[in-house]
Design a protein around this nucleic acid. Structure first.
Lengths: 250, 250
DNA sequence: CGTACCACACTTGTATACAAGTAGACTGCG
DNA sequence: CGCAGTCTACTTGTATACAAGTGTGGTACG
């Protein structure tokens, strides 16, 4: 039959983790491309040729192709069969949806922070805030710290497991946010972060929630401003972009 | 705007649909396998051989493999390199996280339902409830209607765009829920749905929120009960299952 | 000069061959 | 009988060849 009985041999399962630790080329390509897309090194609408990427990264089409499929599932890449693959444009709907989802989860999470939070995590958050003040010149570093900070807040509520889902959903938000980071002095965000944490530890979720909401809305409003300035990044078009010029002869 | 596609399978998410619906083998395999996994036709821990699936579905390994990669990104499949691919087990953490995310989004969404909701959507919800009462014997049909109902509530708040994210995140929850659907008479759920909608339209979000929370918690508690009864489905996470017996000679 | 058409280069989709690794099954030895 | 070592069938990862389709640019024609 199609469902044979497992062997009678009792198996004391080996704690050596096979899957998460093995680094395949597919994974490496996925990480690299995702880094480029989220970091805007590859802007919205940029063409992604499987052959070009394979040649550049020194692998065959297979891992590149599979990485693109993964990115497409994340919503970061659009694949048009027989036409081409392109970095997704940031459309207003996706950004608003991501914003709503993030706001819902993070605000609800505040309500589940215990009265006496984990001192270790609180210390990490404090240290993070200190580094945020030092990183006001380095947007990349600040962006990383910002992610860690919000993830730490989820951890305080023991809801860190939802972080990956939030990250995946807010992929479009991240890109737009990165565009908007230059709008404000980064100090404003550090300030907002500090106030949220202080309010949370002092007055609980009720005190922190409006501050957090205002903080998240600041980010969202930034995106609207960016959209007015650079509308080409926010896809109004349904179809794929026009094909780039063919390769030159040498 | 009615959906012309047959409602046979509620497609979770399709970021690549702006152009004419190109139906690739990869997509067909993905839909079929997802249907089997979510419908528990392929139970948690079941082995998935790329070669076997390719032979059964009449395609080569490539589309099967790519579909498995997509399912792995959804968290429905685990791929252990050089060992095998298996249907993910339902672990307690994932279920709790999915529950929290779903609860956060759906409860927050209630607050954004306008004072005068879209009459068309309300009518659809009413019709859906009527069909729920008729489908008390058919768990499959009821499950489909249940999804449509919750999606409709999100649509009332103009947050339907978050539904795909919720669906993806609660994949584990769905499977566990399907196991637990036999716990209660389905009439209980229909009743809860009706009360939520009535309260929402009558007393607004404040009235509906506690009812919705109670409803979602009912589902969650069911899962805990199923876990006690069938712990083998809620796996010990780490290692891959033992390899099944090799193919028999004929 | 405008337009219709056609060929070509490039794209992704699919099939297939080979590579690397795992773990159960088997055999030989003590 | 027990155990260790090897064998072997199976797994997924990667590379590559071919198939099918699309849009652009050049070309011939009206």
């Amino acid at each position: 039959m199609t469902d044979p009985r497992p062997p009678a041999t009792a198996r004391p399962y080996d704690p050596t983790m096979p899957s998460p630790s093995t680094r395949t080329n597919r994974r490496a390509v996925y990480d690299e491309l995702r880094r480029r897309v989220v970091g805007l090194e590859l802007g919205p609408g940029a063409p992604l040729s499987e052959n070009e990427l394979a040649a550049e990264l020194g692998v065959s089409r297979t891992p590149v192709r599979e990485a693109l499929i993964m990115l497409a599932q994340d919503g970061l890449v659009q694949v048009f069969p027989k036409v081409g693959s392109f970095v997704s444009r940031v459309d207003e709907r996706s950004v608003a949806d991501a914003q709503f989802l993030r706001e819902s989860v993070e605000l609800a999470s505040l309500g589940d922070v215990p009265a006496v939070p984990d001192a270790t995590v609180v210390a990490e958050l404090r240290a993070n805030l200190a580094r945020q003040e030092l990183a006001e010149r380095d947007a990349e570093e600040f962006f990383r710290l910002d992610e860690q900070f919000h993830q730490g807040l989820l951890r305080l509520a023991h809801h860190e497991g939802t972080w990956p889902a939030v990250v995946a959903a807010k992929a479009h938000l991240d890109r737009a946010r990165r565009l908007g980071l230059q709008e404000h002095s980064l100090h404003l965000f550090t300030d907002q972060h500090t106030r949220v944490l202080d309010a949370l530890l002092d007055g609980g979720a009720e005190a922190a929630r409006p501050l957090m909401r205002a903080h998240l809305r600041t980010v969202f409003d930034d995106i609207a401003r960016v959209r007015e300035r650079s509308p080409e990044l926010f896809a109004p078009t349904a179809g794929p972009p026009t094909r780039r010029n063919i390769a030159v002869w040498e």
